[in-house]
């Protein structure tokens, strides 16, 4: 399914309604006596913050049906932004109360109620830890795998304490129907998390893969070839990605998203090309043949149009070429004649990932390649520097904008720049696709 503003609007409306559901639940049914405006405000932000926390689990649950209209990476980007807002809402809840009435300090006083004080203090600490460990994970040297488990546990703890706190305060939650709704609202994220972290890995166990090839590529990258063991293999659309677990257990926390780089026509050997980026990817070349692997997916809406008359403009840098490579290989295998313009940024000629195969594809497909080198050798007479607005204009001015779709993949800065520039050129939102994984 491609992006449509109708789907996006429905999706956003559903999100807002679910986040407001505690407030809606509060105003239906019997109303308790009103308190001061500050208390009601505080309760309001607390309710909304807690509902947002619950929705966070849905956003990060990799539910294909939920993620489809927007693309999973956009969903995770939204999850990240929503997490910050949820944090602000939840923190505002005690701050408003404490700032307007010091009597509320009793909630945090262990002499008044030890368990309550402990839980509420711990939940504030957990929230701060949740945000700090996510926004500054790399700076504090927290490994991705550890972060993933801590993230889920802290989130569940916050949601659980939030629910208990809400039910104990006993305001706006009277009546069995409302209590049931609250339990469902909190139980659903819990069930989802169990589904993501337990049930899905269990299902994946029935679909193992085996590493059949580890190939070194230009530009410090490695291609890993996986063959399905005892099943037909995953069917995907070029441009999509999957979460890969290398090792004997699908429960491993070392699960990372990578784009397919092989042709979607070939399912007996699925390839991923991974660049050494200074973290766990540095060991990818040491993967042994025969290693068991599991794939969760496919995900992503970064896929070419079915209509062969629509051309593809790919603006990529470095390892951002991988999803495009999958498209080009698929076009070749399916004998597609669609026009493709590839603007491909790299530092120098010797680090251009898939350089030789792209040159070959240029003769087989209706493909024009523009290499842009930031540190070229002295004899380089083509595009030098970075992929700038001015450079893009030079090539995009030559095509009929309405007959093309645009695919952008590369470092964050490049993607922000190119997305904005395409919009300023009048390219409609629905025709711009981007893929990024630097979520955490």
């Amino acid at each position: 399914m491609k992006f449509s503003s109708k789907h996006a609007a429905m999706w956003i409306l559903a999100y807002v309604l679910l986040v407001l559901s505690p407030l809606l639940l509060a105003i239906v049914g019997p109303l308790p006596p009103a308190r001061s405006i500050w208390v009601e405000l505080s309760v309001g932000v607390g309710f909304v913050g807690l509902a947002m926390m619950g929705m966070q689990v849905v956003l990060s649950g990799r539910l294909r049906s939920v993620a489809k209209p927007l693309g999973l990476d956009t969903m995770l980007q939204f999850h990240r932004q929503a997490g910050i807002v949820a944090f602000a809402f939840i923190l505002a809840h005690p701050l408003i109360l404490l700032a307007t009435n010091s009597a509320y300090l009793d909630f945090l006083d262990p002499r008044v109620n030890f368990l309550r004080a402990l839980a509420l203090t711990a939940v504030i600490g957990a929230l701060v830890l949740l945000i700090v460990s996510t926004l500054w994970r790399e700076q504090i040297g927290l490994r991705y795998e550890w972060w993933r488990s801590i993230h889920a546990l802290l989130a569940l703890f916050v949601i659980f304490v939030g629910l208990v706190h809400t039910l104990q305060v006993q305001y706006y939650v009277s009546g069995n129907v409302r209590r049931l709704a609250w339990f469902l609202a909190i139980g659903a994220p819990l069930a989802l998390m169990i589904n993501t972290r337990v049930i899905r890995p269990l299902q994946l166990r029935r679909f193992p893969y085996s590493v059949i090839e580890v190939r070194e590529e230009l530009g410090n990258a490695w291609t890993i070839g996986l063959a399905p063991v005892g099943h037909a293999g995953m069917r995907f659309t070029p441009g999509q990605f999957a979460w890969i677990t290398l090792g004997p257990s699908p429960f491993s926390l070392k699960q990372h998203p990578f784009s397919f780089s092989s042709s979607a026509n070939v399912s007996d050997s699925i390839e991923f090309t991974i660049k050494e980026l200074g973290d766990f990817t540095n060991d990818i070349g040491k993967t042994e043949i025969g290693t068991t692997a599991f794939l969760e997916g496919p995900f992503g809406a970064f896929t070419p149009p079915n209509d062969q008359d629509i051309g593809v403009v790919a603006i990529v840098a470095g390892v951002g070429i991988t999803p495009i490579m999958s498209m080009l290989r698929t076009f070749r295998d399916r004998k597609r004649s669609r026009e493709v313009l590839l603007v491909y940024g790299n530092s120098d000629w010797d680090t251009i990932l898939f350089r030789n195969e792209i040159a070959q594809l240029e003769s087989e497909l209706n493909l024009k390649v523009v290499h842009v080198l930031s540190s070229p050798s002295d004899d380089w007479d083509q595009e030098a520097g970075y992929i700038t607005d001015e450079l893009l204009d030079r090539y995009l001015d030559q095509i009929d904008q309405d007959r093309w779709q645009y695919f952008v993949c590369g470092p964050e800065g490049l993607m922000d720049e190119v997305e904005s520039h395409l919009r300023s050129r009048g390219v409609p939102l629905k025709d711009i696709f981007s893929e990024r994984f630097q979520i955490v």
């Binding site: 986040v19 407030l23 009601e40 309001g44 909304v48 990476d73 807002v85 997305e419 919009r423 711009i432």
Partner: peptide, 30 residues
């Protein structure tokens, strides 16, 4: 959906939610 718009979308939703909470509090306290 473009990433450059996700932040703005969240800011808009955040403002909308704050307004909803304010309306709720005002409605409750008359």
């Amino acid at each position: 959906m473009l990433h450059i718009y996700v932040r703005w979308l969240m800011i808009a939703i955040g403002i909308g939610l704050v307004l909803a909470v304010v309306v709720f509090a005002l409605w409750r306290t008359g």
